[in-house]
Amino acid sequence: MTERSEPPHEPATEPAEPAAEPSTAAPPVTGWRAFLHGRSELLLCGLLLAVGLLVLTDAVTMNTTFAQRGPVGPKTVPYVVGTALLVVAALLAVDVLRGGKGEAQGGEDVDLDDPGDWRTVALLVGVFLAHAALINPLGFPIAGALLFWGAAHILGSRSPGRDPLIAAVLSVLTFVIFNNLLGVPLPGGPLMGVL
């Protein structure tokens, strides 16, 4: 399904752990990039390994000064989960090195022959973060409309009149339904202050 794998660096999808990756992909292959080609799933193993270590470290450093009720304290389950994460990371690495491959998820709008347009994903992430930054100062109606408009534009909609109109109507309507009908408060921002 996924013959055309990604180059090992997917800017948007791997925010955290490039450092954990060489430990799993250590074999002295000349040019580990070539080795990783088609085996980018090893990055996932590295991620699982890192999370496992994180969970275990957190459990070890827990200071259980609290009165413990019952024989099983708050550390037990993290120990189990952390250890299981390490085991699964190892098993998955073995599976990948043996040529196993996770089947990328299909769908009616998904074209798996497409190598993957990670630039679009990065842009969408950017718009979403901008929304998070703007929602309090600008209020939901404006920030929400910008989110919809921006996302639709990034995804390829190019209608200079219709896009912002739909975005504005959707955003204001949602604001009214949530804020006034359902009683879920959303920030109105300066716009609603004026109205």
Binding site: I135, A152, L155, F178, L186
Partner: peptide, 19 residues
């Protein structure tokens, strides 16, 4: 149009999380 569909999903997801 697919851009509207997926932009809408992101939009409502944001509403849900913020609420």
């Amino acid at each position: 149009p697919r851009p509207y569909l997926y932009a809408g999903i992101l939009f409502f997801a944001a509403v849900g999380a913020y609420a």
